[in-house]
Design a protein around this nucleic acid. Structure first.
Lengths: 130, 130
DNA sequence: GTCTTGTTTCGACAGCTGTCGATACAGCGA
DNA sequence: TCGCTGTATCGACAGCTGTCGAAACAAGAC
């Protein structure tokens, strides 16, 4: 069976803790921590926010870039950004007037590797490479 | 506050659901669907249930194998299994007295690939064209 | 200084979620 | 048939979540 170039465990310290959950039962503490991250991803607005930030030029986006595409109010966007930040999925920094957010790739990689299902790897279309 | 109209890619494309979200903004519909799956993962008990099922011999587990390790009641386990099933993450079947659950690897793979964060994302040049 | 703009926090509210005990349903064995 | 065991559903309830408008805070412009 072919093996793609997948994020390898131990690639960095954040991912080291998370082997695919299909290999061994998750511990209770690990489950609690991971559930918090998945909960941050469990809202459509936050999911779109995350992808907007990640796909933005330079890999970061100003809040002012993020309020436009949504139907919800600006305080609500701010709230969702806070949730993403507290879950460790994004980082933020104020630069003058604006506040910028960027994705923390290690966090996404951690969740991604956790969900890797060996039996399914062969059925996944060959990566995102264009 | 919401007059901005940014181009959103992938709203009509099936691939939008499976390519890394760091490459292009998630469409609204795709985000709603994916959020449901992540919501199913956003509870520690469900996360552990999923890993217990996946790591069980034969890749499937009877409900009777799943109630033991948890402090919650049997109806609660049944409820969580239902959530996982309705999210499309597991399948189930009754065989005589017992009901068996198994993980649907394609669903995990879908989420896993979505979260894949290429290391390059952090170093994309600011002037990069799309 | 004052004003303007960008962002966060606050307080409130409806709706959803996880949990339970009680109960109903499904098979099996005696 | 009856009873037993395994599983799902029901009804209820406390607590959490997403949302808003109003207000506060931060930084720059005038």
């Amino acid at each position: 069976m072919s093996n793609l170039e997948l994020p390898v465990l131990g690639q960095d310290d954040a991912a080291a803790c998370c082997s695919p959950m299909v290999r061994e039962p998750l511990g209770e503490e690990a489950a609690v921590e991971l559930a918090k991250m998945f909960k941050a991803l469990s809202d459509p607005v936050r999911l779109r926010l995350l992808s907007l930030i990640a796909s933005h030029e330079g890999g970061e986006a100003c809040v002012c870039d993020l309020t436009g595409p949504f139907d919800v109010s600006q305080p609500t966007i701010s709230h969702h950004l806070k949730v993403l930040r507290e879950a460790g999925l994004v980082g933020s920094e104020r630069r003058g007037t604006w506040v910028y957010y960027w994705v923390l790739p290690a966090a996404l990689a951690k969740l991604s590797s956790l969900l890797q299902a060996p039996a399914a790897i062969a059925t996944v279309p060959a990566g995102g490479a264009r």
